[in-house]
């Protein structure tokens, strides 16, 4: 059960790094974002960023030890503001998405490489993004601010 205390509580979800768990993570975060008052358009952007991060972990983080999928830990940090703060941890190979080169967005259809867009979406749509390595874990912190138009 989520804690009802308003300040600096953390809600935590740990699931196996498997594609079938994607909807579980998305619902967990969307529910919180809706409670905070994020508008529909932004909810879709949040889901997009989250999907891209999780799929990247599911596909690559544990690929060296594929016999057993590792875990993904998602922490929702509830701070006394109307921002959405996420922390995503995995115990896979060190990987900093912020260091990845952007894809060539000008390439024509036949020259366009297949792939590389997911990380670009993460960098483009999150309001704040930071990565560090801690206790053999990749730790990605993401913040979304509400845009009041």
């Amino acid at each position: 059960m989520p804690k009802s205390r308003k300040q600096d509580t953390v809600n935590h979800l740990r699931l196996k790094a498997e594609l079938e768990n994607l909807p579980g993570f998305l619902t967990f975060v969307s529910t919180r974002a809706q409670q905070l008052g994020f508008a529909e358009k932004q909810l879709l952007e949040i889901e997009l960023v989250l999907e891209e991060i999780l799929v990247n972990i599911i596909k690559y983080a544990y690929s060296a030890e594929r016999t057993q999928a590792g875990w993904i830990d998602l922490n929702l940090k509830c701070k006394p503001d109307d921002r959405l703060h996420l922390e995503i941890r995995d115990r896979g190979a060190p990987f900093n998405p912020l260091e990845q080169a952007d894809p060539d967005l000008e390439a024509g259809l036949m020259e366009r490489p297949i792939g590389g867009l997911g990380i670009y979406f993460i960098k483009k749509l999150a309001d704040n993004l930071s990565w560090h390595r801690e206790n053999n874990e990749n730790c990605l912190n993401i913040t979304f601010a509400q845009c009041h138009v």
């Binding site: 889901e47 999907e51 799929v55 259809l109 036949m110 366009r112 297949i114 867009l117 979406f121």
Partner: peptide
């Protein structure tokens, strides 16, 4: 269509290249 991610774009690109060829 309510939502598309990079996986969706990737599928579109694969097909667009194929029919382009």
């Amino acid at each position: 269509l309510d939502y598309i991610s990079s996986a969706g774009l990737r599928a579109l690109l694969i097909i667009a290249k194929k029919v382009g060829g």
